[in-house]
Every structure is written in structure tokens, then in C-alpha cells.
């Protein structure tokens, strides 16, 4: 969908357009925040803050400089960093949450595969949890939000080359954290 007319209306003060943007972007903002933070309560708070800030400052958004998604991702990443800094005690992590298996759709054909699937995803997110926040941002932005390196640089506030380096380093660490067996399983599962 082309959001440019909706954004323009919101910038002119049309609150229904703002409502439409809020509705259309709330899930993807929440999911991005969840990927960045790995904690559902924190992700809700960050997504709410990011959307509220973005819409109340929509007049600052310049469509000639970046896409609305990129702008919103930038705010979300910034809010997630703030949240991480302020956080004292972790609540349920995404890895734990995946391990508990609540609210996740069942993609696997049988109970055993289902269990393995969850197990491997849990390991993936445990490995993600072990990355530094900036490396995790690089992984989530590249592999979940499908950002280009240029967009990653804009969102993370670094150069294009730094964004590349972070992703490369993140992959190396992920590979090391996951271990050969998990990597093989993940690869096989993806191919299958």
C-alpha cells in the first residue's frame, strides 16, 4: 500500500489518517521491538512509545529522505535502546517464551517435530540474546525487517560499512553460539 497520501493527510492534521497509520503499523512495530528486545512486555511498551512519538511528530517526517517504515524503525530502535538501558530486571525473554510455546502457531507436522522446532527456535533466540544489542539490531533489521545496508545504517545511526561489519560479526557470533549441530538442523529445516 502507498502510505504517502495517508501520511500527508496525517501531517495536515487528519486524525483518521493518524489512526490508520497506527492500526497498520502497530503489529510490525511490536514485532520489530520483540525481535530487538526479546521480551513481550518491553516490546509492547516500546512499540506504544515509538508509535505515539512517531505520530505526534509526524510533521518532522520527510518522505524525501526515507520511507515511513525506515523512519518508524529508527524510532523503534532508539526506544528499544532506551528501554534496554533503563531495564533492571529481565522479565520473560523471547527464548523462554518460545520454549513455553504459548501463542506461537504450529508449523511442524507432528509432536516430535513440533518439539524439535521449538527447541531449535529457542536456541536461535538464546543465541540472539547473547549478542550485543547492536549486533542483534543488525540481525533483526537485516533478516526480519529486510532492510538494506543503507537503511540499516540510517536506523542504527552508523555508516553503511559499519552496518555491514556489524552484520558480519553478528553472523560469526551466532554461528559460534548456536554450535554446529543446531546450525545443521536449522539449515536442514529451512531447506526442507
Amino acid at each position: 500500500m502507498d502510505y504517502v497520501p495517508v501520511i500527508r493527510r496525517a501531517q495536515e492534521g487528519d486524525d483518521r489518517a493518524a489512526r490508520q497509520l497506527f492500526d497498520d503499523f502497530q503489529l510490525r512495530t511490536y514485532r520489530l521491538a520483540l525481535g530487538l528486545l526479546g521480551d513481550t512486555a518491553d516490546a509492547e511498551e516500546v512499540a506504544q512509545d515509538a508509535l505515539t512519538y512517531a505520530l505526534l511528530n509526524i510533521h518532522r517526517y520527510n518522505p524525501e529522505l526515507s520511507s515511513f517504515s525506515t523512519w518508524l524503525h529508527t524510532i523503534t530502535v532508539s526506544r528499544a535502546r532506551d528501554k534496554r538501558r533503563r531495564k533492571i530486571l529481565p522479565s520473560i525473554s523471547l527464548a523462554q517464551w518460545l520454549g513455553l510455546g504459548n501463542q506461537i502457531r504450529d508449523h511442524a507436522p507432528g509432536p516430535e517435530a513440533h518439539y524439535m522446532h521449538r527447541e531449535m527456535e529457542s536456541r536461535l533466540f538464546l543465541a540472539l540474546d547473547q549478542l550485543s544489542p547492536k549486533l542483534r539490531e543488525a540481525v533483526v533489521l537485516r533478516f526480519y525487517a529486510d532492510c538494506t545496508y543503507k537503511e540499516m545504517g540510517e536506523i542504527m545511526g552508523c555508516s553503511l560499512n559499519t552496518a555491514r561489519s556489524r552484520l558480519r560479526l553478528a553472523i560469526e557470533k551466532l554461528r559460534a553460539n548456536l554450535g554446529d549441530e543446531t546450525v545443521r538442523w536449522l539449515v536442514t529445516e529451512t531447506i526442507r
Binding site: 502497530q26 523471547l94 501463542q103 506461537i104
Partner: peptide, 17 residues
């Protein structure tokens, strides 16, 4: 890389607040 992307999507795409 694809499996990381797929794992992220499998975990995050159904997630709702």
C-alpha cells in the same frame, strides 16, 4: 542466513501484543 530469517519470521510473525 535464510534459516535465521525463517526462524525470526516463524517466531515474530504470529506475535501479537
Amino acid at each position: 542466513h535464510a534459516s535465521i530469517a525463517a526462524g525470526l519470521h516463524r517466531a515474530l510473525d504470529p506475535a501479537r501484543p
